[in-house]
Nucleic acid binder design. Structure first.
Lengths: 210, 210
DNA sequence: CGTACTTTTGAATCGCATCAAATCTGGTGG
DNA sequence: CCACCAGATTTGATGCGATTCAAAAGTACG
């Protein structure tokens, strides 16, 4: 991984990441950029919280390993903040890894807290960010409470997609994990839905039919 | 339901509800108290957000109704705030009902937002509250990703209980819903675990065994 | 005492997990 | 360019566990 301090093209960054636009100057100046390779570890559970991470490009996942060895995806971010709740904690409560080569912005936690106190606009935006994350997690819980694979798929398309159409931005295997299913179960459910005519699949484009 | 404005015994309230202790005076002065009967509706999905709710006594649940008619519990609060994310939204994204006769504090959303801007301490506490809710929801997602009933029960006791011991504060039926199981599956899993010796059940006290 | 609800058990069924293995894919290096 | 590899995708067979439907027993409350 490579670290470059203060070599950011902020204009380009802000254009890409609306969330970054609100970062106060003082905080921007102490930010660090980080490039990772396809399967890098950002932090591990139990480590002290030193940074808040902003995903510029690529994908970062919060994961927790089960007794069994299988991993649960707690959050997946392809742009925007990740592990927002860590700011409130001394240590991390899960692991964070990159799922592909990624570009990140590391914002020191101390400076971040100061910025929240000093900049009311930023503070508001941050609260809004936390609230959005809560809504997203509730949708996820609701989805995982559904008992059939088809229902979870439908729910995902409805809530994450756009008017009944979804372009999948990850492998089906990791989608399965996000849906709380084995990949085999997902594949089979997709095929069944396609045969039923409930779902139209074109590559990574999924369209729901009435 | 009964509404009494400004008839609160704030000392008693603050003793009961630590979260209430941080509410600024200006906001306290426009708060309303509400008593509900056992199955009252606080708000419905789609309604405009007018208040933030603080549960003083009793239990409030955020629920969403599935196509099937079965209800999913999105949040359960027996003290403290509920529907925190609604403050950031124009309308509610789910229904809220009381599960038993309850006492609530209604804090007008407008005044709440003003208070957040004016009182840095309150603002910080609120962010901390949102972060806590996020962590709780992540734990819930992790639990729902587990495939077996016993694993979910264990996970619940570990994360919600105290050192491997949990005192259940709800009916087993609604616990089952929270675990994403049918009540029959929960009863059977509990019995199996008891027979295995993995779990000790004494009324509403559940203790995990190694 | 009756009503509504939870708790508990039973039996049958279905769907998902699991294990196994074949094919397809993109990327690497010879 | 091709061989090769790691990973994703896909299909098959099997078993278990949760759902579902049904019903009895227990419990709280008016």
């Amino acid at each position: 991984m490579n670290r470059d301090k203060n070599t950011l093209d902020w204009c380009a960054l802000i254009a890409m990441q609306p969330s970054a636009g609100l970062i106060p100057k003082a905080l921007r100046e102490v930010a660090t950029q980080l490039h990772t390779d396809s399967r890098g570890t950002l932090f591990r559970i139990g480590e002290p919280v030193r940074h808040v991470y902003l995903v510029i490009d690529g994908e970062v996942r919060l994961i927790r390993l089960e007794r069994h060895g299988s991993e649960v995806i707690l959050q997946r971010s392809r742009g925007g903040f990740i592990a927002e709740a860590s700011l409130d904690s001394k240590i991390y409560h899960c692991d964070a890894v990159t799922a592909e080569p990624s570009t990140l912005l590391l914002l020191p936690a101390v400076a971040f807290r100061t910025a929240l106190e000093d900049d009311p606009t930023f503070c508001k935006a941050w609260q809004s960010q936390l609230a959005k994350e809560i809504r997203k997690l509730r949708a996820q819980c609701e989805r995982l409470s559904l008992h059939s694979a088809a229902d979870r798929i439908t729910h995902y398309i409805e809530s994450e997609g756009d008017d009944g159409a979804l372009t999948l931005k990850q492998s089906r295997k990791s989608w399965a994990a996000e849906l709380g299913l084995t990949h085999e179960a997902l594949y089979r459910a997709l095929r069944r839905m396609q045969e039923d005519g409930t779902l139209l699949i074109e590559g990574n484009q999924f369209t729901r039919k009435p």
